[in-house]
Amino acid sequence: MAATVSAAAPIGPKRRMSRTALFENIAGFLFISPWIFGFLVFEFGPLIAAGYLSLTKYDILTPPRFTGLANFDKMFTRDPLFWKSLWVTAIYSLSVVFLGVILGVMLAVLLNQKIRGMSLYRTVYYLPAVVSGVAVAYMWAWVFRPEAGIINYGLSLIGITGPNWLFSTTWTLPAFVIMSLWAVGGGMVLYLAGLQGVPTQLYEAASLDGATRWASFWNVTLPMISPVIFFNFIIGIIGSFQVFTSAFVITKGGPANSTLFFVLYLYRHAFENFKMGYAAALGMILFLVIMTLTIISFRLSNRLVFYEGRIT
């Protein structure tokens, strides 16, 4: 009965927005208008243009020629380097994201202790995250030198002959993973903020229940910082799939394409081979890959991530 009444109830007169609300809305839109302008001109516009260019043959110097899905056909059926670059990037991304999360959390837990000089330690660990990518790449090129590099020198002290890190199809990718973990401090700061937001009464309750330190970490700390871990995971996937600078500076994709990351391959087509249409098609694939991984992660997050606000 109530439902019937509700359904039959006349719709009331449209509420007019007050002058105050109207002005505040306009002010709000004006405030965000620089961002909207930037997004439309520098992101959405190029995205649409790239979508169109991916369906063309375009060498920059002559007008694009529409070729339909030819670029994608070549990519999937006749271009082994497309699959190679995707594979190299996927392996790198998987290693960097998982190791980055584990190391970042471990580091944050260590730096969450109450000891003297902690601010200094935190700064030191965060510092690599703000150093220029090119400078970092050059530094690591020295670190990985086969004879006089610090890593192989360290290994030689314990009787191990280190590999030729940057000229071995086996060791180059692990070298790049190690290099990326150096900047784990960026994520660590967020984990640290997450750790400091965990209510102490939860630990007290766990302690009263007889939980060990490990049990507290596993059942209290991790679930409470899981949104931060999830955030870093997503950002990590997006970032690691776009890795470019270090490979461009140090190996140029070699040896034998063992560090041919996807964006480096895209760059080669766009700016070395002048195949802008094909490069745009590679860009669209990268967009789809990252979007798909992000959607899958969000779906999984319902089961793996604990949001305090959802407790009813």
């Binding site: 002005f23 505040e24 306009i26 002010a27 709000g28 004006l30 405030f31 208008s33 620089p34």
Partner: peptide, 9 residues
Amino acid sequence: LRGAAVVGA
């Protein structure tokens, strides 16, 4: 707010 938004935009 109004003034700042106009300047910002």
